[in-house]
């Protein structure tokens, strides 16, 4: 099944529940009418929250840059000894 159909069916299920709520008037109808807007706002908040969390705990590795420089020095030494032309250009 194409992924767009999965998403469409999730949306259809949510709409069905919403229409059901409108029909049965479990909640006061003027609340029910606003539910889709709440849903969109909630989804937006979730997105922003996830991006924020991702930024706050963005894994960084400054020590790796230092280690890489050491590896480069080591590699250049070995390679130039073995006749590979690694002079920086």
């Amino acid at each position: 099944m194409k992924h767009i159909f999965k998403i469409t069916s999730v949306l259809a299920a949510i709409s069905a529940i919403w229409i059901g709520l409108l029909q049965t008037s479990l909640l006061p109808p003027n609340y029910t009418w606003l539910l889709p807007i709440y849903l969109v706002v909630a989804l937006g908040c979730y997105g922003l929250f996830m991006v924020g969390i991702g930024l706050m705990f963005f894994p960084t590795c400054p020590q790796e840059a230092v280690l890489l420089q050491q590896d480069i020095v080591e590699a250049k030494e070995f390679l130039s000894k073995n006749g590979v032309d690694v002079a920086s250009d």
Binding site: G54, F58, C61, A65
Partner: peptide, 15 residues
């Protein structure tokens, strides 16, 4: 895991 050498903008777009 992790990334080194990205500025805030790059991290933001990536996230």
């Amino acid at each position: 895991g992790g990334v080194h050498g990205w500025n805030l903008m790059r991290k933001l777009t990536s996230r």
